[in-house]
Write a protein that binds this DNA or RNA. Structure first.
Lengths: 351, 351
DNA sequence: TTGTAGGCGTTATCAG
DNA sequence: CTGATAACGCCTACAA
């Protein structure tokens, strides 16, 4: 910086002013400085800057290591906004075991100015730590207590209703919902499946529909045999709403194998879908896609707003998943035999 | 730090010595200092430390945004090693468009001491930039020119041979290989599928086997119709080696639907498998799993070694994928009709 | 609009 | 083994 100042015949302070755009500088001086910067290939030192300004201009996205979800779209959305606003988004992998230490270290060391937290649980220790450390943060997802908390989230309630309504309009009356059963895992308190299930139950009773819930542990064998299970537990089902992408794959494949036609005999839709695997299902799954990129962008914007001193009411946004047409949905079949009879019949024909 | 020094009645220098373990300190003084640190809840400031020592103790894993691969295991391996050795691993999302700017910024700004680079292409601009910026780096994957370069990689050659050999031992003589066709994408020059294909061709001719290669673009329709395509192009195939997880899912599902029994009529194995989706295939896919965690760990270790001044020959490691048994492999069928005849026969029976 | 100068919190060198 | 103290590179009142 000294060299740049000398080269442009100004003081080092002036260089700082143009580099940070923090004070007005005559166009010609600015020009001279920029040229000097360019010629000398100068880049400001992040550590020194952070030390002097007490701001790192880094936002940390706490990156859940225990988890196999697909966060790509979300990260992209957040990274784009961060870049546009002069921040760096950094993914900080932490184990939930030592969350406390790592989070306070992250903040107290001044490494990050603020935090984006994903895979939020209804009661989430990390949120407590973040509050204690007085770190600005924005949740992706929701805790039970949302008072004064910035968050962005998918609107699972509306998405669930939307999916059911669309299927109802096609004449379906017998529903099943597939959700992950996370009890016993570190994500036991993760709310999306819980909320989807509650909404589903509610809608079913409101509309006088039949609804069966399939909670499915993250266990290959359980997932693989899902079609058989549905057939057994709710053979009258004509429409399945699945919030578990891998299960959707298995379900479609399993029924196809059993001779149940999709969507002729059974309609399937995915909700809150984030993996591309569903496009590979045959027929391609109709989904209500998770709005990953917009959520990431909103979260980053909200956080940076806070960092830059915007106060006011918390950002609390929910986005409904949007429909991506596939070929797995059709009108409710008339007088279709139960799924097990159907499968048995087709099996006879095929033997 | 001043407060801690006062509280423990030593100089601030001494505090630094115990905090960094950089000079011998009397056990009792150290004890006093540690206690003071604890009582005051002191944590050293990352920026100041980086500024004074000219080291950030951060290693950046350049995180490919364009890509949907599953890097979880790898990241976990690297993060664990980094933590153990007192470094922070940070994932730095960059678009390949402005790779040059972002990489030099990352290094010149002193943000990271070194870089881990994944999804390496045979000719990779980012490597050039890294060299220019004189940044210590370790590749996960390989460039064409490896002279003096630290890298860790999967051994696709040996893995491919291994898979073929195991299938040969079961009597298979008619092979097909499924690889991603990345031409026309930003990853066009990504070497794993290229090398697997070359090895496959080589092994086939060495052993006098029949081998058919299916290059498959990342296109839902193409993936979905894979079984039909194989049936058409290489109806004599009895064993498929797939390096494309999504395609494996589609293939297994497709053949099951066509009445081709797995593994009775056709064996399928996955190689370099990194997603858990293959466990959901029915029957569960037999795979040679990508050694993500060990590779990540090795890469991080190699990088930190460099950062800490170990010189000597470059780390150049290749790890072969290890077998995870599934139920998709069996002995070669005797006198099996061609796949299309088989499917036609079963379809007749079923209609 | 620009310059001066005092930190920012640590590390590291050099004495003691 | 411990203590002073000069950097580290930049930001930011405060002056001019």
């Amino acid at each position: 910086m000294k060299q740049v100042a000398a080269h442009a015949q100004v003081s080092i302070a002036t260089v700082s002013f143009v580099v940070n755009d923090t004070k007005p500088v005559l166009p010609e001086t600015r020009e001279r400085i920029l040229r000097a910067i360019d010629e000398l290939g100068y880049r400001r030192n992040a550590a020194a800057r952070a030390l002097a300004s007490r701001k790192s201009r880094i936002i940390a996205l706490i990156y859940p290591l225990l988890d196999q979800r697909n966060h790509h779209a979300f990260i992209e959305g957040a990274a784009a906004v961060a870049a546009r606003r002069g921040y760096s988004l950094v993914l900080w992998p932490i184990h939930s075991d030592n969350a406390k230490t790592e989070i306070t270290a992250l903040i107290q060391a001044g490494f990050a100015d603020g935090v984006l937290l994903m895979e939020v649980q209804l009661e989430d220790d990390r949120v407590t730590h973040l509050k204690q450390a007085k770190a600005p943060f924005v949740l992706i997802g929701r805790t039970r207590d949302l008072d004064g908390i910035d968050y962005v989230d998918m609107d699972f309630e509306r998405t669930t209703r939307l999916a059911v309504d669309d299927l109802m309009a096609l004449g379906h009356r017998d529903f099943a919902l597939v959700v992950e059963d996370l009890s016993g895992t570190p994500l036991a308190d993760y709310s999306p499946p819980i909320r989807a299930e509650q909404t589903f139950d509610l809608v079913m009773s409101e509309r006088g529909l039949r609804g069966h819930v399939l909670r499915l542990a993250h266990d290959p064998e359980a997932v693989r045999s899902l079609a058989e299970r549905l057939m057994r537990e709710a053979p009258g089902t004509t429409a399945v709403v699945s919030m578990y992408d891998e299960a959707s794959v298995s379900l479609a494949g399993g029924f196809r194998h059993l001779g149940v036609r999709i969507p002729g005999d059974l309609s399937i839709v995915g909700i809150a879908t984030s993996s591309t695997i569903t496009t590979l299902i045959d027929p391609a799954l109709t989904t209500y896609d998770a709005p990953g990129a917009p959520l990431g962008a909103l979260a980053a914007d909200a956080l940076i707003d806070r960092l830059e001193g915007r106060d006011g009411p918390p950002t609390q946004v929910r986005i409904t998943c949007s429909l991506r047409a596939g070929a797995s949905v059709g009108p409710a079949p008339r007088d279709r035999p139960s799924l097990d009879e159907l499968a048995a019949g087709r099996a006879d024909a095929g033997s």
